[in-house]
Design a protein around this nucleic acid. Structure first.
Length: 271
DNA sequence: CTGAAGACCTGCCTGC
DNA sequence: TGCAGGCAGGTCTTCA
């Protein structure tokens, strides 16, 4: 469910709630999500040292050398509840913690997945080895995107959602950043001028930074680790607004389907 | 190699 | 009311 701002918001929440706590017990209510779950019982007694993020993956650094890598898929959520809280629907894994709380993983559609790695295995793991730069880091800049779009005739929306080009830009923020940049989502990447790609790079950074600042979006499944919703959904300018008036001109927001995903755009502002 | 489409899974909303 | 169909924030696999 979550795009980069949501995962980053979850990461920050979990960092506060988990670091320094020990895992006292682990219960898996099913043996696999998207893939088989790793044997999590080995984490019993381990202290959580850090919670990091790479792309849309959460990385829990544990005492010793192990890293629990977790992807939330479309509908994954972590909640921190009192240990005595009853098991909720679609709660697949419980970690009881040394402070009397319980970390619960809930995932309706079960597209989430997890793996337990040693720290030296992460970079070369298939999930990480081909990932592009983080969109908010300096190595994702205009010149980089220009180079990535050269010779690519795929629609620009597909290119910015390609995790080997840049990580973390999902279906919502792809539409939002293309709107801000005034670029039609179906335009072939190679047919966009250098100057406009520089603007798009800046808009990707801007929209993601604003969403993180607002605590992520809240559509149906996203909630923070502490259960509070994010507020960025109120700031969508095109996503989910087909049939509504554009905020910038007198045209109506349209929807089209690209690679099986909905894309929202304004035919007046984007070309 | 590239790009498009299907697959995974459940729940909710719409329209007949 | 009931049911079929479409839709949902991700990513991997398959196919042309």
């Amino acid at each position: 469910m979550p795009e980069l701002p949501e995962v980053e918001t979850v990461r920050a929440g979990l960092e506060t709630l988990l670091v320094g706590r020990r895992i006292e017990s682990v219960v898996c209510h099913r043996s696999s999500l998207r893939y088989p779950l790793p044997g999590l019982a080995v984490l019993t007694g381990k202290k959580v040292m850090r919670v990091r993020r790479r792309a849309k993956y959460l990385l829990f650094d544990l005492e010793g050398d192990q890293i629990l890598v977790w992807h939330l898929g479309m509908t994954g959520q972590f909640h921190v509840l009192p240990q005595q809280a009853e098991k909720g629907p679609h709660e697949h894994v419980h970690f009881d913690l040394s402070d009397g709380k319980s970390l619960r993983y809930r995932d309706t559609r079960r597209f989430g997945y997890a793996e337990l790695l040693n720290s030296n295995e992460v970079e070369q793991h298939p999930w990480f080895v081909n990932l592009g730069p983080e969109p908010l880091e300096a190595d994702f800049d205009g010149e980089y995107l220009v180079a990535a779009c050269r010779n690519r005739k795929a629609p620009i929306k597909s290119v910015i959602m390609d995790a080997t080009v840049v990580v973390g830009v999902g279906n919502i923020y792809a539409s939002e950043s293309l709107f801000r940049a005034g670029i039609h989502p179906a335009r072939a990447a190679k047919r966009i001028s250098h100057k406009r790609l520089l603007v798009l790079t800046a808009m990707i950074k801007q929209v993601l930074a604003e969403a993180i600042e607002a605590g992520g979006s809240s559509i149906s499944d996203f909630v923070h680790a502490d259960g509070k919703p994010g507020y960025f959904a109120h700031a969508f300018r095109v996503y989910g607004r087909q049939g509504e008036m554009c905020v910038c001109c007198d045209k109506v927001i349209k929807r089209l389907v690209q690679a099986g995903r909905s894309t929202f755009y304004c035919s007046g502002c984007q070309h």
